[in-house]
Nucleic acid binder design. Structure first.
Lengths: 221, 221, 221, 221
DNA sequence: CATGAATGAGGGTTCATTCAT
DNA sequence: CATGAATGAACCCTCATTCAT
């Protein structure tokens, strides 16, 4: 290939044309790079308003490159979901819920999950939650797996109480969901921009624990 | 001038316009018809995957007719939001929260709001919530107004307790949010398809009231 | 998420995209190709009656490709205008109007500009003129720059005469415009299809020069 | 497509026509009202950017009413053209070009036509000119009739000179066009917003006459 | 593997025209 | 005749995806 193609103007650098990007050694992190870029843009603009061009730009790559690592745009969302599930499950595994008193377990657990949101996980959650609310097929497939870890951990946590007869079995089901809902609701309100929650986020573990254990009347006792 | 200007290759015969179905007589509720059709499709497919053609088909109208009643597709979402706000505010006004004991007020309030979701409001909420999570501009403008009614009602409900010194002022803020979150979280879990919640939805008012007032340990006392 | 979200009545199978004709290798002149195609169609059908599909077809490209090179349809018009301006200015620069006797300069200048119209420039001019007459915003921005080159050249051409006191300064302004108008008017009449002008176009340089220098009565003198 | 296809065009006075059903008192000016409204909006926004709704609003009527008086939007333009033609022809008829010396006839004629533009006619001209430049079919049908009156008048005006042998017959053709072009060019430059012309518009009749009769060198003689 | 121009189906929106009232 | 809501073809434009380099 000649170096004097159709540039017309001559004079400037006639350096031999080199591959725009020399062949990179296989980079297993490329996939992660893309995914992280995607989350950032999704969080800013929402999944549907984000174009693949946006993601490519954010990742510093060409648009076509995305398709070497993900089958399509949807796959990015699914990968995000997988990531969130893993995280959730890892935390759940880590917590030895049934080995511990609720009084110490609950705040630690809340703390742990809320911390995760303070870091990047909130962005992903917001995107995924929106899509789950909106996409029936995705919801049928994944909705359960999103809440499941929390439900499981809560169930284990309350199992002893239930075992001791303090909670009737049919109460357990709703109670567990109530605690998960309390947590999830806080997260959603935070995602919706509640300023008070943003400022007092660190107080939540204790506050929620108090509420769960004793209701709002505790202090009055 | 299109009938005069066709020339050369591009010119083609203007197809005679034929009305397939004669239009209906004037309907003052046309705006409502469209809005309801829109919610139904939004709920099925999500806002972004819903086309204006979908909405028109669902409403039994021509696509262009939508634009005689709404400026654009976004306006449908805003109209939805307005509707939800009115609903929320109406309920809030109705409830004489500070005139009543929490024991009776809370379950009644929960009941009222949850009932609304059992009917059509849930569809709208799901759509709007997803969009609020995803659309920063919309969120800045409307997010507060979505949660505000619940927060206000909760604040009024707890005002007496706070007035009696049972809640410190700085507790009030978080407590109120915790109750709102408990409620919101339940709704979201329901929207995400939780089967247990769907079946035992009618038990929630009492169960949530118990939790709020006494925590999970109530039965043990 | 379109592959996951199709549900209910609206869902239909995604048609597999098949490229009809493999695209051409990278062509740096693609922008020019498009622009030239656009002028041709504009000239045939007028700007507003020309669809982007028309242009694409004329250029042998897909419709979307236009938008890789021009921001929108209007940008094609502006690019046309820029081209015309450059042309006009180049000619103006070339002509050493104030170095030469009017008797030799004028016919040469007329010849030069009229030749340009015989080639492609007339199409562009016709389109742009129509739009300038019709689009106030465009007119405010560009109208002056369209006539300016001719006015400038005419001013320079008459400067010596004016300097020698043969034209009073306040005459210069109108005289210059009269000559520009004479030229412009001829062009417009030609664009409007005057058959006589088409046939005797080559006589114009001399005829106009005679008129400008001596009026219609010259021969009688 | 005939220029007279509009309903009831054949009768000059509409007083003869009497509706059998005088629900509204028959208003022969309604058509004129609409046409004038149309010109105003066309002049502001251009023909293609003007919607029938715009015209209806400007005329203070409902959109459908337009179609009781004009077959379609194009017909408004044709009616405009007819009006301009009549005007032009009336002026041409009025002027006794061949009965008068050029020195007095020319400035009076220029004056007359330029005055017309100072009033409303310029708006219509600008719209029609743009469309003629742009619409081949319309151009073929009407372009000649737009310039014809001026050409005819000029021909008659110069006929004596030609008859006296001062202009060779083949010169006459081009000379006539040159004068028409001078006039037309001035109008176009004015329409394009030339500020100088706007301010010194009243000087044109004399200035143009001088140029036509003696060329730019007259004063120097 | 990376690139990014090309693709074209499909989206939201406009608007001339119709017609029941 | 006047009205104006309804119509739907057609427009401009977007953007996920492909593939030659």
């Amino acid at each position: 290939m000649s170096t004097h193609s159709e540039c017309g103007k001559e004079g400037e650098e006639k350096t031999i044309r080199q591959r725009a990007t020399p062949r990179q050694p296989f980079d297993p992190g490329r996939r992660t790079t893309i995914l992280q870029a995607a989350v950032r843009v999704f969080a800013r603009k929402g999944f549907h308003r984000t174009t693949t061009k946006d993601i490519a730009r954010e990742a510093g790559l060409a648009e076509g490159t995305l398709y070497n690592h993900f089958q399509n745009k949807d796959a990015l969302l699914l990968a995000l979901l997988d990531g969130l599930n893993e995280t959730g499950r890892r935390e759940a595994d880590f917590a030895a819920a049934d080995q511990e008193e609720l009084e110490t377990f609950l705040p630690r657990y809340f703390q742990q999950r809320l911390d995760a949101l303070e870091q990047g996980a909130g962005d992903a959650l917001s995107v995924i939650l929106a899509e789950l609310l909106t996409n029936a097929e995705l919801r049928d497939t994944y909705a359960h797996s999103l809440v499941a870890p929390t439900l499981e951990i809560a169930e284990r946590a309350f199992s002893r109480w239930a075992g001791q007869g303090r909670l009737r079995p049919e109460q357990l089901e709703l109670t567990v969901r109530a605690v998960a809902a309390l947590f999830l609701g806080m997260v959603v309100m935070r995602l919706l921009g509640d300023e008070t929650l943003r400022q007092r986020w660190h107080e939540l573990p204790d506050a929620l624990t108090q509420l769960v254990l004793h209701g709002i009347g505790k202090d009055a006792v």
